[in-house]
């Protein structure tokens, strides 16, 4: 009884959040899961239970649905890998450059962070111009900059590329928008390392790169993990950006877009729900180990 009096108020304070999230996250997810086992079509969502048929169709590479979903899955994996890795590296480099006090630090910091403020709709329009792959008189965007500065070999087809890596080009605008945030996280993380620890290492004769590697790096693991989670969840949900870059181009199609078109244009509600559940499963694969890791790490400390 005394114990309840101790933790009871806490539970009570969190309870409203738990209830609304229970409905708006888990309830709705359940609704979607249920729908994914039906042949629901049209707006009245009339359909019968068909078991795993929708999932089977998505996996069947003989049909066009399965082929498209296969391409989409590959695309989203490439996009996630390039976007997450790119943003982490760019963010870290920028943070290291800024770390030891440079003149105009706040200027640089603001410049790096502000793209986050711009809506994806506007970002997509500017970037689809920048990543235009026209040649000759149509040469423009980044490719034109490259050729003007003697870096012509860098010019490429970006998101129009035939190579299967076209989607990687979309990671550029996405990274442009979010690597500043990662930079801020890392910068905070680096500066969070107590000065005396670093100083002690220097006293022991460690050079600056060694200090970074042996002292700062281990302390950055939690920051890296949280940056990773934030980037990964944005990546799997990236929708507006690709939607506004090139509508329905299979080169940059992802499951989120396929779900949108098949549901709201085609009226295939059951199939759309199945794609959503697979997306969610994909997220779970990434996020559950992370949660498990962080809870365990906490217990240890």
């Amino acid at each position: 009884m005394r114990q309840i009096r101790q933790w009871g108020p806490g539970l009570l304070l969190v309870a409203p959040s738990l209830i609304v999230l229970g409905i708006f996250v888990y309830g709705f997810m359940g609704w979607t899961a249920n729908l994914s086992f039906t042949s629901a079509r049209g707006r009245n969502l009339t359909g019968d239970y068909v078991g795993f048929d929708n999932y089977r169709e998505l996996a069947d590479e003989r049909g066009v649905t399965g082929q498209r979903f296969g391409i989409d899955t590959q695309n989203v994996l490439i996009f996630t890998a390039v976007f997450v890795a790119g943003s982490l590296i760019a963010g870290l480099v920028m943070a290291l450059l800024l770390d030891r006090g440079v003149r105009g630090e706040s200027f640089f910091r603001s410049v790096f962070i502000f793209p986050m403020a711009i809506s994806f709709i506007a970002i997509a329009i500017v970037w689809r111009w920048l990543l235009s792959n026209g040649t000759g008189t149509q040469l423009t965007g980044l490719n034109k900059l490259f050729s003007a500065s003697g870096l012509g070999f860098l010019a490429n087809d970006w998101f129009k590329s035939d190579s299967g890596w076209a989607i990687a080009a979309v990671a550029l605008p996405a990274g442009w928008a979010l690597s500043g945030y990662v930079m801020a996280l890392f910068l905070a993380g680096i500066r969070g390392v107590p000065d005396d620890l670093r100083e002690a290492a220097r006293v022991d004769g460690a050079r600056e790169p060694q200090v970074l590697w042996h002292v700062v790096r281990p302390m950055l693991l939690p920051v890296t993990m949280s940056a990773l989670v934030i980037l990964a969840h944005i990546s799997l949900k990236t929708f507006d950006l690709i939607y506004a870059m090139d509508l329905k181009s299979l080169k940059i199609d992802t499951p989120a877009l396929f779900m949108w078109f098949t549901t709201f244009e085609g009226g295939f509600y059951g199939r759309g729900a199945a794609i959503a559940m697979l997306l969610l499963a994909g997220v779970a694969v990434v996020i559950i180990p992370y949660i498990w890791y962080s809870v365990r790490a906490e217990r240890r400390s």
Binding site: L21, F24, V25, F28, M29, W31, T32, H233, L236, K237, F239, A256, M259, W260, T263, G272, A273, A276, M277, L279, L280, V283, A284, I287, I291
Partner: peptide, 11 residues
């Protein structure tokens, strides 16, 4: 935390 990750189009 998991609520962060649901694709909004799906719900």
């Amino acid at each position: 935390l998991f609520g962060m990750f649901i694709p909004y189009q799906a719900i």
